[in-house]
Amino acid sequence: MTVLELTNVSKSFGALQVTDDVSFSVPRGQALGIIGPNGAGKSTLFNLITGNILPDAGAITLLGRDVTRSPAMDRVRMGVGRSFQIPQPFEGLTSFENLLAAAAYGQNKREAEVADQCVAILRDTELLPKANQLAGTLSLLDRKRLELARAMATGPELLLLDEIAGGLTEGECQALVATIKGLHGRGVTIIWIEHVLHALNSVVERLLVLDFGRVIGIGEPETIMASREVREIYLGMDV
């Protein structure tokens, strides 16, 4: 079954075409990586999928339903969870409350019904010792973990991760990758934008390359990474 399908999706901001006739689909359970140089339109693509911005043309289908014009909130409840590139925690709430809010609203349940899940997610993301700490006082690593944890708390079918490994040390990165692998192992479909390629490639089964808003390659990571076009455009070198 296809979780997400984009058909000829385009978006421009003024004269700048940030998404140019993009089509691809993601089957259930797959982990898809998205790479591309800065400004290639990766985060815009996420915003189109979550409904934070609406496309100028094309169609987006989620779990077989056309959501092209649906508001972001509906898509969350249908199972789209996302993390932000720059962590955006609810700073005045504790880590635990951040998850409670996400779980209660993302799954549309009462707080008491989702509390156990939130505790389990805090444990999985190693945030449990900081459960009662205000999110505004967390370190960068913990904020990144909280981004992941909060996205998970919404109960996603499809998890969108936006440069979750960026800015972390090697050790921190490995811990996060292990968590994401665990999630993936449980059947969550993942789309992951990442510049830290070794982290990305240790999880994803498929890689999509974006440049100037266009898809210039999609396929198995080894094939994509080996293609000359990708190396030239994305890595900016001739090898």
Binding site: T50, N52, A72, M73, V76, R77, G81, R82, F84, Q88, P89, F90, E91, A101, A102, Y105, G106, Q107, N108, R150, A153, T154
Partner: peptide, 9 residues
Amino acid sequence: NDNAARSVG
């Protein structure tokens, strides 16, 4: 953060 609030439903 109302942007993040919307993104969790």
